[in-house]
Design a binder for these strands. Sequence first.
RNA 1: UGCGCCGUGGAGCAGCGGUUAGCUCGCCAGGCUCAUAACCUGGAGGUCGCAGGUUCGAUUCCUGUCGGCGCAACCA
Length: 528
Amino acid sequence: MSEAPRFYITTAIDYPNSRPHIGTAFEKIGADVQARFQRMQGKSVHFQMGNDENTIKVSQRAGELGQDPQAYVNDMAQQFQAVWAALKISNDDFIQTTEERHRIGCQKFIQAVYDAGDIYKKAYSSQYCDGCEEFKTERDIVEGKCPNHPQRTLRVVEEENYFFRLSAFQDRLLALYQSQPDFIQPETRRNEILSLVTTGLQDVSISRKGFDWGIKVPFDPEQTIYVWFDALLNYITAVGYGTDDERFQRIWPADFHVIGKDITRFHCALWPAMLMSAKLPMPKHVLGHGFVYFKGAKASKSAAEKPRDPMDYIAEHGAEPFRYYFMRECPFGGDGNFSEERFIEVYNADLANNLGNLYSRTLTMCLKYFDGTLTGALETDRTAWVAECPNFPQLVQDLGGLVGSFQYNVALQKIWLEVLDASNRYIQATQPFRVIKTDPDACRVALLNVAESMRVLAILIKPFMPATAERFFRAFNWDDVQAWETVSYADALVRPELSEIQVRAQISDGKPAPLFPKIEVEPPATRS
RNA sequence: UGCGCCGUGGAGCAGCGGUUAGCUCGCCAGGCUCAUAACCUGGAGGUCGCAGGUUCGAUUCCUGUCGGCGCAACCA
């Protein structure tokens, strides 16, 4: 039996120091779009997310709140997952690094690297800030003081830690980048890593002494595994490394690690080196996405603009516009901006006036003129609308390529410009609202064609706005002959054999409810 | 200081060695009336930060410069 090709995609795991913010949401949405797209293409997708809990700061934070660390991280994990669920993130799994499966895999891994001879013990001496409870590097220190605690004096603390021999992997890493040219994406990130690794790598400290919280080094219980040697491993422990080898063999390696550009070095240099040492296969791609910045607040009443909880926007306008905004406005590989004004502008222009309006006008005409049932669909040429959309098959193929390569903003612009606008132009050209009076048949044919364009749109936007896409699709009875759950991009080209098209959308007072009610910026003109 | 990014019509962004520099919003004029005052057509508006260089030709490549910004080993 032939198995569906596998596709394993991960996001970075997050520190649960505070609630998820808009920037982390950007990463999850971008990965989710890819996961959904790959599922549409028939892949057997595993989409992995999680929280990074074995950090000193987490236990400190719990202490501040007077909570047990485990209870604290469990609660945070619930909160994170609630946000991701509200954003319709379709992850298949969510790992907490305090879970047993992670601890077991982690210890197995570090033991393997130790046995391979790539871990050694070394005395580490550095300035230590009691305020931060952290070692400070030369660069951190300003005028001999910790910038966070200028009143305190730094003291030199010496400690024995384990180090990973990262420096020894320079040649092997460069060979990796050579043999897998698209390992690091996008190009600018690749160039950065290339120069970093070419310049030379230092060994990294991978353990700390004297902390209760965290995973013990198996060959030295006095030491706790520190940050990256713990966090990165979630990508393999989550899929069975150390606990379910059969599953691990099946799913690993990852097709994509989707991460923020600031941590590309850990994923592109440290991580592959770790895997090489443990003799595990390399992931196929690492994608370092850009950041989302908040546009400086305009000199208006809303003075101090600070990152709002993503939940605020989701609750106000729905998850789908939120997803659309980021995917359309922020090139995934580069940086983007968020501002409320821009959000409203994009929402009104693209969603309310275009997408939502097409939905309303089409359904209304079908109901008004034909009672919602258009017969004789098989006899008509339901390709005419494509005349407004030249080279349609090529377009669909291009779109698949764009989405598959994370060029979401380009893909969405193309869909709007070349499919949605074409649909509106088609209505203008055929004027069903006018010919209904003189030639009802011409009107019927025109509406059948618009219904078809809506089906196409539904498929094309499915990875980005799953719920909206489904409403578009189910606005008519396409589901009778084509299962929504299994449509692929290629199905956009296939016009289902359906003899009669019926409106199935929710109707109240003879009208479909607006999909995206326009956001009014101006206060009501006169209030008297 | 090191690394990287940006500077394109009023605003926000695309673009990229070569026909009339695109898109969204805003503005102006017209059309239409099915629709969420929406949709369609047309228009005004840019010497593509500045100065050099490479080239038959640069917004697009190189150098310098001014201005804005991000990152810098454990914050997406």
